[in-house]
């Protein structure tokens, strides 16, 4: 199988409590042994509470952090981020859209310069063709090309997010990382952004990693889901499979905790998930979820479960299965 991106046993530990000789005695286990792969045109939804490592995972894939161990393969080639030339070429393929377009766009730059900047850094388009290219990108995201001389404050929240998307598309990437792309904009603009993302995925053959805590957005957009807890993948699989037949107690509890309405206007009953996420420094022995789990058995306190394949498109890390 040809994967676009293949992450193998990815780990990222951040040292804390460094001593005199710069040796750390403890580590934050932000991402701990995560493996997954992205195929072309995949939309992979990543869900989890804050502190579960989803943002660190995104940053590892972006090449912002280098992993403590593990490898990332892109289009079959292992990525070496130490080599500057490799790094630039790799970063061109992966771009990110951030949560809050009020913070992610420089208020002192015109839309034109915001979108042009990546192309100037990577020298992909010369200044002569720049205006045409920017018009093309703006039209693609549904903003009229003659608004390119406006500043971010002249655009609405939804339009700003469109500009951020246009900027991320400017280097013709193959994978976009969308970090909560619609959580800070209004419902009606959100619908427009989601439609736009699906449309450009089909037009440009993109793949997405979609980080969100809005399950209806994840269910609507993605074809695969990764559920993370304390740096580990606890459940992973096809979106319909997960929503119809979720197995891990954490996935069940998380789904129950998030309010949503279905198409017929029925409200889902919600139930609180008790307890807090344990510290990622001193990890609990055995299964990481054992303190909050209703179905905890003896083995859960002793041994950490591994991700097992239950079905063709469904894996879960739990001793119950």
């Amino acid at each position: 199988m040809n994967y676009l991106l293949n992450a193998k046993n990815l780990k990222k530990y951040f040292p804390v409590n460094k001593d005199l000789f710069n040796k750390a005695s403890k580590y934050v286990h932000a991402v701990d042994d995560v493996s997954f792969s992205v195929e072309s045109k995949d939309i992979i939804g990543i869900v989890g509470e804050s502190g579960c490592g989803k943002s660190t995972l995104a940053q590892l894939i972006m090449g912002i952090y280098s992993p403590t161990s593990g490898t990332i393969e892109f289009e079959g080639k292992s990525i070496n981020l130490q080599n500057k030339k490799n790094k630039l070429a790799y970063k061109r393929n992966i771009q990110m859209v951030f949560q809050d377009p009020y913070w992610s766009l420089n208020p002192r730059k015109m839309a034109r310069d915001i979108i042009a900047e990546p192309m100037r850094v990577h020298k992909t388009v010369n200044e002569y063709d720049m205006d045409n290219e920017i018009q093309r990108l703006l039209n693609m995201v549904g903003i009229s090309g003659d608004r390119m001389y406006e500043y971010p404050h002249e655009f609405s929240g939804g339009e700003r997010q469109r500009i951020a998307i246009a900027r991320s598309l400017s280097l013709s990437p193959k994978l976009l990382i969308l970090d909560e792309p619609t959580s800070s904009i209004d419902t009606l603009s959100q619908a427009g952004i989601l439609n736009l993302l699906i449309r450009i995925r089909d037009e440009l053959n993109l793949s997405y990693l979609l980080i969100s805590h809005d399950l209806s957005v994840i269910h609507f957009m993605s074809n695969k889901i990764i559920v993370m807890y304390l740096g580990k993948i606890v459940e992973m699989g096809d979106v319909n499979e997960i929503f119809n037949n979720m197995l891990h107690p954490y996935t069940k509890a998380l789904m129950l905790a998030i309010p949503s309405i279905d198409s017929a206007g029925n409200i889902k009953k919600v139930e609180a998930l008790e307890g807090n996420v344990p510290s990622a420094i001193n990890l609990p022995k055995g299964c990481r979820f054992n303190a909050r789990c209703k179905y905890c058995i003896d083995i859960c306190l002793q041994e950490e479960p591994t991700l097992k394949k239950i079905d063709k498109n469904h894996s879960v890390a739990c001793h119950l299965y």
Partner: peptide, 17 residues
């Protein structure tokens, strides 16, 4: 407003705007 909410049942369709 309600129609523009993404829900599971609307998967694969274009959300009305």
């Amino acid at each position: 407003f309600l129609a523009s909410l993404p829900t599971a049942g609307k998967k694969g369709t274009v959300l009305p705007i």
